[in-house]
Protein backbone atom coordinates (compact mmCIF):
# COMPACT_ATOMS: atom_id res chain seq x y z
CA UNK A 1 0.00 0.00 0.00
CA UNK A 2 0.97 3.59 -0.60
CA UNK A 3 0.78 5.61 2.64
CA UNK A 4 0.21 9.33 2.29
CA UNK A 5 -0.39 12.18 4.67
CA UNK A 6 -2.73 14.71 3.12
CA UNK A 7 -3.04 18.11 4.77
CA UNK A 8 -5.16 21.17 4.12
CA UNK A 9 -4.51 24.68 5.37
CA UNK A 10 -5.26 28.35 4.78
CA UNK A 11 -8.99 27.60 4.57
CA UNK A 12 -8.77 24.66 2.11
CA UNK A 13 -9.72 22.40 5.05
CA UNK A 14 -13.22 23.90 4.99
CA UNK A 15 -13.92 21.80 1.90
CA UNK A 16 -13.00 18.68 3.86
CA UNK A 17 -15.25 18.91 6.88
CA UNK A 18 -12.72 21.17 8.62
CA UNK A 19 -10.29 18.26 9.06
CA UNK A 20 -6.76 19.47 8.44
CA UNK A 21 -4.87 16.18 8.41
CA UNK A 22 -5.80 12.91 6.71
CA UNK A 23 -3.81 9.66 6.68
CA UNK A 24 -4.66 7.63 3.63
CA UNK A 25 -3.67 4.30 2.13
CA UNK A 26 -3.85 3.74 -1.59
CA UNK A 27 -3.66 0.49 -3.44
CA UNK A 28 -0.33 0.62 -5.26
CA UNK A 29 -1.03 -1.86 -8.02
CA UNK A 30 -0.80 1.12 -10.33
CA UNK A 31 1.34 4.21 -10.21
CA UNK A 32 -0.07 7.26 -8.47
CA UNK A 33 0.68 10.73 -9.72
CA UNK A 34 -0.74 13.98 -8.37
CA UNK A 35 -3.16 13.90 -11.32
CA UNK A 36 -4.74 10.67 -10.08
CA UNK A 37 -4.51 11.75 -6.48
CA UNK A 38 -6.57 14.88 -7.16
CA UNK A 39 -9.36 12.79 -8.64
CA UNK A 40 -9.13 10.33 -5.75
CA UNK A 41 -9.39 13.17 -3.22
CA UNK A 42 -12.36 14.62 -5.06
CA UNK A 43 -14.12 11.25 -5.01
CA UNK A 44 -13.15 10.14 -1.50
CA UNK A 45 -12.38 13.08 0.79
CA UNK A 46 -14.15 16.09 -0.67
CA UNK A 47 -17.57 16.68 0.86
CA UNK A 48 -19.14 19.07 -1.65
CA UNK A 49 -18.34 21.90 -4.04
CA UNK A 50 -15.85 20.10 -6.32
CA UNK A 51 -15.42 23.34 -8.31
CA UNK A 52 -13.83 24.92 -5.24
CA UNK A 53 -11.12 22.24 -5.36
CA UNK A 54 -10.66 21.23 -8.98
CA UNK A 55 -10.99 23.27 -12.15
CA UNK A 56 -10.23 21.93 -15.63
CA UNK A 57 -8.81 18.72 -14.15
CA UNK A 58 -6.22 20.52 -12.07
CA UNK A 59 -6.19 22.34 -8.78
CA UNK A 60 -8.25 25.53 -8.77
CA UNK A 61 -6.38 28.86 -8.83
CA UNK A 62 -5.38 30.12 -5.39
CA UNK A 63 -4.49 26.71 -3.92
CA UNK A 64 -0.82 25.74 -3.83
CA UNK A 65 0.17 22.08 -3.71
CA UNK A 66 3.24 21.03 -1.73
CA UNK A 67 4.91 17.66 -1.65
CA UNK A 68 7.08 17.26 1.43
CA UNK A 69 7.10 21.05 1.83
CA UNK A 70 8.21 21.73 -1.74
CA UNK A 71 6.18 23.55 -4.38
CA UNK A 72 4.79 20.85 -6.70
CA UNK A 73 5.96 22.91 -9.66
CA UNK A 74 9.54 21.96 -8.75
CA UNK A 75 8.60 18.28 -8.92
CA UNK A 76 6.79 17.98 -12.20
CA UNK A 77 3.38 19.29 -11.30
CA UNK A 78 0.48 16.94 -12.14
CA UNK A 79 2.85 14.18 -13.26
CA UNK A 80 4.85 13.92 -10.04
CA UNK A 81 4.86 10.27 -9.04
CA UNK A 82 4.00 9.77 -5.39
CA UNK A 83 6.24 7.78 -3.05
CA UNK A 84 5.36 5.92 0.12
CA UNK A 85 5.07 8.28 3.12
CA UNK A 86 4.87 11.43 1.04
CA UNK A 87 3.18 14.42 2.63
CA UNK A 88 0.92 16.27 0.22
CA UNK A 89 -0.34 19.62 1.48
CA UNK A 90 -2.92 21.93 -0.08
CA UNK A 91 -2.54 25.53 0.97
CA UNK A 92 -5.10 28.14 0.13
CA UNK A 93 -3.54 31.56 -0.29
CA UNK A 94 -4.59 34.02 2.42
CA UNK A 95 -5.60 37.58 1.61
CA UNK A 96 -6.33 39.08 5.00
CA UNK A 97 -4.23 41.84 6.43
Amino acid sequence: MLHLTIEFSGGAELLFGNVKKHQVELNNDTKWTIRELLVWIKDNLLKHKPEMFLQDETIRPGILILVNDSDWDLLGNLSYELNDNDNVTFISTLHGG
Partner: peptide, 8 residues
Protein backbone atom coordinates in the same frame (compact mmCIF):
# COMPACT_ATOMS: atom_id res chain seq x y z
CA UNK B 1 -1.17 37.88 5.02
CA UNK B 2 -3.22 36.56 7.89
CA UNK B 3 -6.67 35.17 8.54
CA UNK B 4 -8.25 33.59 11.59
CA UNK B 5 -5.37 31.72 13.30
CA UNK B 6 -3.12 31.50 10.25
CA UNK B 7 -0.42 33.57 8.63
CA UNK B 8 1.75 33.46 5.51
Amino acid sequence: SALKFEGQ
